[in-house]
Nucleic acid binder design. Structure first.
Lengths: 124, 124, 124, 124
DNA sequence: GTGGTCTAGACCACT
DNA sequence: GTGGTCTAGACCACG
């Protein structure tokens, strides 16, 4: 049995950068901080950063320009694709978790709808 | 910025046990493994187990009988309470995450509904 | 048979702080001494203090602000709740003790009433 | 500030024996276990036992017969006196504690009366 | 500086 | 054997 939520750090970094792109904290064409700077900011090893960036490059989310740095792709479709991907990932997670609690599909939708309704009331 | 998803171990253990009760892997009245055994199984210190169990005891989810062990409460209402609690926790999580991706309340519900619909098709 | 009245130290600390709040030696919003200072004052280990404070935090009697300290909750209803709790605890104790001396309910009330009457005479 | 409820052990032993007499676990004229036996039973030093017994002898609650042992006095009035003493002690304690919580005399009586009334309901 | 978490190890009480 | 308490000391996160 494993408890420690130890998703590999490089995956966490990947997701983190994806989120920054979706939420427009990183814009298409924008230059990322240098690998060394990211390593310092996130207090992880340079190799860990490299692994995350190379994976993002494979997915054509980043483009590497030798001697210049890493840049967010200009391809605007990517943002849309990323958003879909992250949403799907969250939905998958909650779905699995609630299924494990033995909720039916209908109950899941019902619970979420009610949850959001209550959230709305709180604000008013 | 924090990357490591390091919810304290004792809280992870608490939730794990709660899940086991809700999913009936642990039945009302059932004896838990000894604290020392759990410490070995989960490769954490005995005190960390104690902290989790003591918290569950305060919540009246477990009863401890000195010299005998820890037991799941017989109070069946607790199972229902726990289920509500865990569901709410998952909904809160997904809600926050999707809000961070700048979805509106309606979009969240829509996306989930569609997600589940697609899941249903897969099986058929 | 047990002789030493050794309620766990952390529970004694919990009750001590509760009393200080009820008797307004600690006011709502007031900052407690640091855990390390309390440990020195009460000549116990830091962890023992932590355990007491963490329990009080769970009961929403204290609020902790990381890096700042522990504070008595602003929620004034808590003081009332605490007072009720401490009174009940004392009544329970005396009731059990006098029952052990084989007094009836009526005798207990009668004795207390007379005791207080005599107290009053002393002053006059 | 002191926390540890460290009433001297010999006082605790004194009270313990007094309670046993009042509750008739020790009858007038009955022989107590030997000092050495009591020391073993209560896991305390023989001198501690001696101190407690000698104090009880001074109060004419016990009689020492050299070479035979310690005996509960035959004086039946003693039982009554002891009971009064123990009751008074408990009342004094609860009175002081509730006064510290800033209850008036009337409130103390009222709270106790209600407390006992609720106790009665529980049983029915 | 603050509090929070975790470990290692000791000792106690109960059955 | 069981769980409960306490200590000492380490390391982390927050401000």
């Amino acid at each position: 049995m494993k408890f420690l939520e130890d998703r590999p750090i490089y995956k966490q970094i990947e997701e983190h950068i994806k989120r920054q792109i979706v939420t427009k904290n990183l814009l298409p064409g924008e230059k990322l901080p240098s690998v060394r700077q990211l390593a310092i900011d996130l207090t992880v090893n340079v190799n860990t950063i490299q692994r995350a960036l190379s994976s993002l490059t494979d997915e054509e989310i980043l483009e590497t320009k030798r001697g210049l740095g890493n840049f967010v792709t200009e391809d605007s479709a990517v943002v849309h694709r990323l958003k879909e991907e992250l949403i799907h990932q969250e939905l998958e997670r909650v779905y699995v978790q609630l299924k494990a609690l033995e909720l039916t599909d209908d109950e899941i939708i019902m619970n979420l709808t009610q949850f959001i309704a209550e959230k709305g009331e709180e604000k008013s």
